[in-house]
Measured scan of single mutants.
Amino acid sequence: AVSDRLIGRKGVVMEAISPQNSALVKVDGETWRATSGTVLDVGEEVSVKAIEGVKLVVEKLE
């Protein structure tokens, strides 16, 4: 799938994300809905860990 190429890519949080709420991230110039197990604020850099349906699963870039 096209989205599989995004695993391992870096992105930027466009809307705050919490474990209860998905929000938008920008990866390679494209906007995607994403979820995370932690709270992520706007502007934080993230890494794509997986794809669940049409959502990216991201975590904060260390």
Rank of each mutant, 00 (worst) to 15 (best):
T31N: 13
I51N: 03
T38G: 10
K49Y: 04
W32Q: 09
S36K: 00
A16Q: 10
L6P: 03
S18W: 11
L56C: 01
K49R: 10
G11C: 04
A34G: 07
D4Y: 00
D28V: 01
T31W: 14
A34T: 08
G8A: 03
V27A: 01
T35P: 02
R9G: 04
V27Q: 01
E62N: 12
L56N: 02
R33E: 15
R9K: 13
G53A: 03
L40C: 05
E15D: 06
E30G: 04
L6T: 03
V12N: 03
L56R: 02
D41P: 06
G29I: 00
V39Y: 14
L24C: 08
R5D: 08
E52G: 04
K49N: 05
E59S: 07
V25M: 00
V46W: 00
S47I: 15
V48K: 00
G8E: 03
K49A: 08
V48D: 01
G53F: 03
R33V: 15
A16S: 10
V58G: 01
T31C: 15
G37N: 14
V48Q: 01
E52P: 01
E15P: 04
E30A: 05
E59H: 04
G43P: 01
V25G: 01
K60D: 03
G8I: 00
G43S: 03
P19V: 09
V13I: 07
V58S: 02
S47M: 15
L24Y: 08
G29T: 05
I17S: 15
K49H: 06
G8M: 00
V39H: 13
E52M: 11
L56H: 03
K10Q: 08
N21A: 10
L6W: 03
K60L: 08
D41S: 14
G53N: 05
R33C: 15
E44F: 06
V13D: 03
A1H: 11
V2A: 12
I51H: 04
K26D: 08
G37K: 13
V39W: 14
V58I: 05
I51R: 06
A23K: 02
M14C: 10
L6G: 02
V46R: 00
I7A: 03
W32E: 09
V25W: 00
D4R: 11
S47F: 15
K55W: 15
I7M: 05
G8S: 03
T35C: 13
G37M: 13
E45Q: 11
R5I: 07
V39D: 12
V58C: 03
L61Y: 09
V46K: 01
V46Y: 00
N21Q: 11
P19E: 13
D4T: 11
A1V: 12
I17F: 13
S36W: 03
E45T: 11
G53D: 06
D41Y: 14
V46H: 01
V25P: 01
N21D: 08
A23Q: 05
L40M: 07
V57M: 04
V25E: 03
S22K: 06
A23N: 06
V46G: 01
L6H: 03
V48P: 02
V57W: 07
V48G: 01
K55D: 09
T38M: 10
V58K: 00
R9I: 04
E15G: 07
D28C: 14
S22V: 12
V48Y: 00
V54N: 15
E45L: 14
